[in-house]
Write a protein that binds this DNA or RNA. Structure first.
Lengths: 192, 192
DNA sequence: GTCTATATGCGGATAGAC
DNA sequence: GTCTATCCGCATATAGAC
């Protein structure tokens, strides 16, 4: 819910309805809405970091292959999620880039969404969000490092993250995975 | 206000306070908050489209120069805006990429922010948002077209927009312009 | 066109029985 | 640990005098 609708537009009523529990139950386990959200972000951060570290540093495989696993991971994380019953047939909307258009879509990145929604004034979420992106960049940099010098590898890693996050935004707008998929493809090409 | 705090977290009270008028005045000129936002987006869209078209099709200058003007335009549009009195000294946070870190920052793209906040279910804003990004992509594609074939120029244009928008997100999180500036630099390199 | 006052509903959060 | 009932404040929006 937070990923799809954002933090402020998601009400406790939305959440309890989605969970099939009573509104008040949340307040037994969490201090308030903010703490609940913080826990969601922490959980996503941790899950992602674990995977990224595992894949990026798997010395038993060549870098190209490790990157491919990371790509698959993000493709699922960001585009596999199914948004429920609003599945209206989506018009392809516009332009056909490197990849062909790919039907209905849901997904997105709760970390980026939350960043844009809340990062004006630093607040409680900022640290987890920063950690998330730093881990991601570090993992990519580690892989690009096998082909490029330190500084260049960092810039490529940052460029990849930006490309993907921008792609997720366009994916949401046009309901077309191709923006994400193209970005992922470009991230792999950088290692060829 | 909408750009900084987002649509849902911005109250009519915030807006009227910022404008130095009474809350009720808005309802004389606009049907409701949504209509007010729609007008803001329409205005930004129109302003941007006018500039983009003018710069991209200025046949009196070489493509490289036209792109440079577009770059400067977006640099101002996205990073020049000054966020008011919350100017706390910002720690550089992390990594130094291609460009050196550049002090305090404000800015961002209201169109991307609004997309992520509201585009789950299409709603009223979607058309303006789409137009905005289509115009932007088209302008860039027109310039890349001078060096690349149609399809490739389109993909580069989309990649540039994604890179920049992702950069704006990181810029907001780390309060560091470098992510935007690096993306703009990369967009120019693609024409060299 | 601008003001004051206020209606109305919803969102976050709590009380307290069970 | 789960339930029902409810408080309280704020946000959108309107009424109606001036």
């Amino acid at each position: 819910m937070f990923r799809r609708k954002g933090y402020y537009d998601t009400s406790m009523a939305d959440l309890s309805a989605a969970c099939g529990i009573r509104n008040a139950h949340f307040y037994y386990y969490f201090k308030n809405k903010e703490a609940l959200m913080a826990e969601v972000l922490r959980s996503v951060q941790q899950f992602t970091a674990e995977r990224l570290q595992r894949y990026a540093h798997d010395e038993s495989r060549p870098p190209r292959e490790r990157l491919a696993r990371i790509t698959r991971f993000f493709e699922r994380l960001y585009a596999h999620a199914t948004d429920p019953p609003d599945a209206t047939a989506s018009p392809p909307a516009v332009s056909t880039g490197g990849a062909a258009s790919t039907g209905a879509v849901a997904g997105g990145c709760i970390m980026a969404n939350t960043t844009l929604e809340t990062a004006s004034v630093p607040g409680e979420f900022t640290p987890v969000l920063k950690t998330f992106f730093e881990t991601w960049v570090a993992a990519l940099q580690h892989l690009y490092r096998t082909k490029y010098p330190e500084a260049e590898a960092l810039e490529l890693a940052e460029a990849t993250v930006q490309d993907i996050e921008g792609g997720l935004m366009l994916m949401k707008l046009y309901r077309d995975k191709k923006y994400l998929l193209n970005a992922l493809k470009r991230s792999e090409k950088r290692l060829d």
